[in-house]
Simulated assay, not measured.
Amino acid sequence: MNLEQRKVWNENHKALTGMLGRPDKHSEAADLFLEQHRWLYASREAGGLATYEDVIMNTLGEQTFRAYPVRTSASRNSIAWHLWHAARIEDITMNVLISGREQILHSGGFADKLNTRFIHSGNGMDESEIAELSSVLSFEALPDYRLAVAERTRSIIAGLSAAELKTRVSARRLNQVKEQEAVKATEQWLLDYWGGKTAAGLVLMPATRHNFLHLNKSMQVKVKLEKQPARQ
């Protein structure tokens, strides 16, 4: 996914925003969502066009993946944190809030596979926690987790009706997120934010836009570190 393709992605996201939840545009919106979402995750298909995650992960060294802090114009966080956080947010919102299902983190055994004690969304972590996550997060398991989250999201959204996309998040499911400790106790504002959203709103942010923004930040980190001379 090159710069021109990212510009097209942004334009298509604007179009998706105008279509989601409209009964007369439902089929078109679902197809566009699936296409937009596909660009954000590793393709794992030989000979296909490189997605945004492909561009970041291809040739990415583990040292660059874990580097923290990295001072860019948008963030100090590591690529490890950005890719993990984006997937955690999508896992929580798509599975618990929209479909009422178990998180992929738990159903797929990734709470152990990812090799980190953190099971929340990543919001509100202090510097020592981000440093810990960046140093221990499984370099091998994270792409598998992200792909599992992506596949579940696509199946969920493809099965929603236009009416269901207009449905607001229920208080019961927000409470489930709290009970599962998927959001830190200090970050309950996030539940309030999600509680004001419809399913369509969650599809737009975080399932597409939020992930895209964190891929942008990951790319900035990669570009900056690759420009620096290797440490002896």
Rank of each mutant, 00 (worst) to 15 (best):
G195K: 01
W81G: 02
R168P: 03
N123H: 14
A158D: 12
W9I: 01
N2K: 11
K222W: 00
T153E: 03
F118W: 14
I98W: 11
E45L: 06
Q63F: 07
Y193E: 11
D91R: 15
T93D: 04
R44A: 04
V55N: 03
S135D: 07
E179N: 13
L114A: 10
P143A: 09
A131L: 03
I104K: 02
G124K: 05
I98T: 15
A87K: 08
A86F: 06
W81H: 10
L34E: 12
N211A: 13
V203F: 02
G108K: 10
T167Q: 13
V169L: 04
A207P: 04
H82L: 11
G159N: 13
E179D: 14
R44W: 04
S27A: 15
R101C: 12
R231G: 02
H37T: 06
F110M: 12
A141Q: 10
S121N: 10
I79A: 08
A182G: 12
D112L: 15
G61L: 08
Q5Y: 12
G48C: 05
L204S: 06
S128C: 01
K184I: 00
F33H: 07
R173I: 02
A158T: 11
V136C: 01
I89F: 09
L3C: 06
R101L: 13
D91K: 15
K224C: 05
A200V: 03
E102R: 15
A200H: 00
M57I: 01
G124N: 10
L32E: 06
S161Q: 09
N216V: 07
W194A: 01
S218I: 02
L40T: 05
R101K: 15
G201K: 04
R209S: 13
E140A: 09
Q103T: 15
G18E: 09
V96F: 11
R172G: 06
R172N: 07
A207Y: 00
A46F: 01
